[in-house]
């Protein structure tokens, strides 16, 4: 895969580049500021990019904004956003276009290199990958979407793992169930959330959106 790494701290950027290259992927560009990131994303069109939220020049959410702007230009451009903290607010903004190919993780997720690169590959493939911390926050929040109230407990746990970005196979392993059982649960929860079987929309992304959409 061709990867762009956008991170302002040299040590972290360097470490990330080395980690990604160690897994046999190619880092085609790096960026250290918001404008550089946007430029790199739009000109290099990487298979996937790793973007830090807080970057110069304003040290606010430059990276996040660059990622969102790039995805407005190129729908579904795969971006994995990294941050020192995760906010539901940002997760919702990233997922809002429903195009998939999005990931949002705490920076320390790179500690587990296998899982990190796995998430990176999932995002590159158009899937979603959410940090368990985001999902945990969602679970602890009070109100939720009307459709979600009709889900059974099991469907709930399947949906939350799906939101983390796991495949049916991985969910089956986590819950000690067969893959066919999981696919039955997913079909029924898609039905309850009113997500139709349409090839052009990413059903899993829509399910996660329903999960996040609690207004």
């Amino acid at each position: 895969m061709r990867v762009v790494v956008a991170e302002d701290l040299y040590l972290l950027r360097d470490g990330m580049v080395r980690l990604i290259e160690a897994f046999g992927h190619e880092v085609v560009g790096t960026a250290a500021t918001g404008p550089e990131t946007l430029d790199a994303l739009l000109t290099l069109r990487p298979d996937v990019s790793v973007v830090d939220v807080r970057m110069p020049p304003t040290q606010s959410d430059e990276g996040l904004r660059a990622a969102l702007a790039a995805r407005r230009e190129v729908r579904g451009l795969p971006v994995l956003v990294l941050s020192q903290h995760v906010e539901q607010l940002y997760a919702r903004e990233l997922l809002a276009d429903g195009a998939g190919g999005i990931g949002y993780f705490l920076k320390e997720s790179v500690f587990d290199a296998d899982q990190f690169v796995d998430a990176l590959e999932r995002v590159a493939g158009g899937g979603t990958a959410m940090d368990p911390a985001v999902i945990a926050k969602l679970l602890s929040s009070g109100s939720s979407n009307r459709g979600l109230e009709r889900l059974t407990e099991r469907e709930h746990s399947v949906l939350s793992l799906m939101a983390e970005g796991l495949s049916n196979q991985a969910i089956a392993q986590r819950l000690f169930l067969s893959e066919s059982a999981i696919s039955k649960y997913t079909t029924s929860l898609f039905g309850k959330l009113g997500i139709t079987d349409d090839d052009n929309t990413n059903r899993r992304v829509l399910a996660v959106l329903a999960y996040l959409n609690k207004t």
């Binding site: 939220v53 040290q59 903290h85 906010e87 602890s140 109100s143 609690k214």
Partner: peptide, 22 residues
Amino acid sequence: PVLNERGLVDAVRALALDSPLD
């Protein structure tokens, strides 16, 4: 951090999302 990154209004919105209340 969200206060630094986004200012008061979005920070309050983030707070609302994290609250166990509606």
